[in-house]
């Protein structure tokens, strides 16, 4: 059963873009270990030939419920005005969202 190493926990936190303080990392290591020991048992279940259920309703025309057309016609429709859509934005410059530079050394 997977008992997580500190390094693995750090790797997962990086993948999740989640900063964890040192004490959080430690707690996470032990808590996730316990949870995975418990729920990780499903990895050992033989489910050969059982289809995966990706959604509770059929997303095609063959499922248990009435068929769903998940595509709508590709036509422009009214949407939120830019100013309203950006009202909750933490840092703006006009209609632009200001973020730190992605290329090292560049400015915002």
């Amino acid at each position: 059963m997977p008992t997580l190493t500190r390094k693995e926990v750090e790797e997962i936190a990086l993948l999740a873009r989640l900063h964890l303080e040192s004490d959080e990392l430690e707690r996470m290591q032990s808590e996730l270990g316990v949870i995975l020991d418990h729920f990780g048992t499903i990895a050992a279940i033989d489910a050969t030939g059982i289809p995966a259920m990706t959604h509770a309703v059929a997303m095609d025309h063959a499922g248990p419920f009435v068929s769903l057309g998940v595509l709508r016609p590709d036509e422009p429709q009214p949407s939120l005005p830019v100013d309203e859509a950006l009202r909750g934005t933490p840092k703006r410059d006009g209609d632009l969202i200001v973020v730190p530079a992605i290329i090292p050394g560049a400015k915002e």
């Binding site: 997962i12 999740a16 989640l18 900063h19 949870i35 973020v99 530079a101």
Partner: peptide, 30 residues
């Protein structure tokens, strides 16, 4: 706020989410 994007993401999420949400995100990412 942070000087680079990756740190800004991580610090924002580290500060904004509570312990249970962090646990579930970690579990799901795993």
């Amino acid at each position: 706020e942070a000087p680079d994007l990756l740190t800004q993401y991580s610090k924002t999420r580290g500060a904004g989410f509570g312990p249970e949400v962090k646990r579930r995100i970690m579990l799901g990412t795993y």
